[in-house]
């Protein structure tokens, strides 16, 4: 630092400038900010290449005509809104997601509570077993489910008949086909909820339960006034995350029904595939897949804001 005759600072950076350029660079590179930035670069590149670029590219694609020779703005979206099949896809996607996320949350929570009551030593085996559906490759397990539902030789129907229940047209009737795909999604996704809720349960201080028990609180009261409020943020986060993933379901529908019967089980992802790849209309397929984005963005905003407010 250089000072003037009256003691005022003339040039705070003077000593630094006095250094040779190479040394200055070396010094800057050694600063915490520079190291932090450098270490983030691979991640930034990864997100840029695998998230941001495809996202913006798909927006660009969705605004082209079928031949990809002209920019048509939002015409693809307007066109979709005039199609019956698209609205059927919207309806199926929301019914599927709503029911699947709800049941995954309920079953995951119940399973977590049950496993939490098992003595610590025995929990490991139950945790491990419960996670099997989630760790299996989904395309593979969906294939297994296909054999269970197989229209002509369904193993599940064989069991139903054995216990006196009439066989169901699992994949050949729109109602049962929807039940079938939701069931597989619930089977696959419940362990994610279970393991997250279990971790949350373990983080609740035992003293809270002990003191409430001394005060005479029933199990239901403890659940309502201690467990659920303490897990509120985790429940919100898991449901948000699961909503995003469930709305993007592809494998299960593709393997089990291919969107049928009569297009009744198409989700955004499978319908986008049918339009974009199988029918050669990539811009329209991109438009279908982007329909999810504003819905998910708005839901994420409100859920995350709710969590932030409740934790402040």
């Amino acid at each position: 630092m250089r000072l003037g005759p009256n003691g005022t600072v003339l040039d705070a950076a003077a000593p630094a400038r006095a250094l040779p350029a190479r040394a200055r660079w070396r010094r800057r590179l050694r600063s915490r900010a520079a190291i932090g930035l450098l270490m983030c670069l691979p991640l930034v590149a990864l997100i840029g290449g695998l998230v941001a670029y495809p996202f913006f590219y798909s927006i660009y694609l969705s605004m082209l005509n079928k031949r990809e020779t002209a920019f048509i703005g939002l015409d693809n979206f307007r066109f979709l809104m005039t199609r019956d099949v698209f609205w059927q896809v919207v309806q199926t996607s929301f019914v599927f997601t709503g029911l699947a996320v709800f049941w995954k949350a309920v079953l995951g929570f119940t399973l977590a509570l049950v496993i939490h009551t098992v003595p610590t030593g025995g929990q490991r085996i139950w945790r491990g077993l419960s996670l099997i559906p989630w760790v299996m490759p989904l395309a593979l397990s969906s294939l297994g489910w296909w054999w269970i539902y197989e229209p002509t030789h369904s193993a599940l129907n064989w069991l139903l008949v054995l216990i006196g229940i009439s066989p169901k047209p699992w994949l050949s009737d729109p109602y049962w086909a929807k039940v079938a795909v939701i069931l597989v999604n619930v089977w696959y996704g419940t362990p994610f909820f279970m393991i997250t809720y279990l971790a949350g349960l373990k983080s609740i201080p035992a003293e809270l339960f002990e003191s409430s028990a001394i005060d005479g609180a029933s199990g239901l009261q403890r659940l309502r006034h201690i467990t659920l409020p303490m897990l509120k943020s985790i429940i919100a986060i898991t449901m948000l995350f699961s909503t995003i993933v469930t709305l993007a379901t592809f494998d299960i529908v593709r393997v089990l029904t291919r969107g049928g019967p009569r297009q009744s089980t198409h989700m955004f992802g499978t319908y986008a595939f049918e339009l974009g790849i199988a029918s050669g209309d990539v811009p329209l397929g991109a438009a279908v897949s982007l329909f999810m984005f504003p819905i998910l963005a708005v839901s994420a905003f409100f859920i995350l804001r709710g969590i932030r407010r409740s934790t402040v």
């Binding site: 229209p151 002509t152 030789h153 699992w170 050949s172 009737d173 086909a177 009569r262």
Partner: peptide, 21 residues
């Protein structure tokens, strides 16, 4: 025809014939 033809895939008719049904 069988009622489950609405849920068949490309291999279902093959299995249908091969099974003897």
């Amino acid at each position: 025809m069988p009622k489950d033809i609405y849920g068949w895939d490309d291999a279902s008719n093959n299995r249908w014939l091969i099974s003897g049904k």
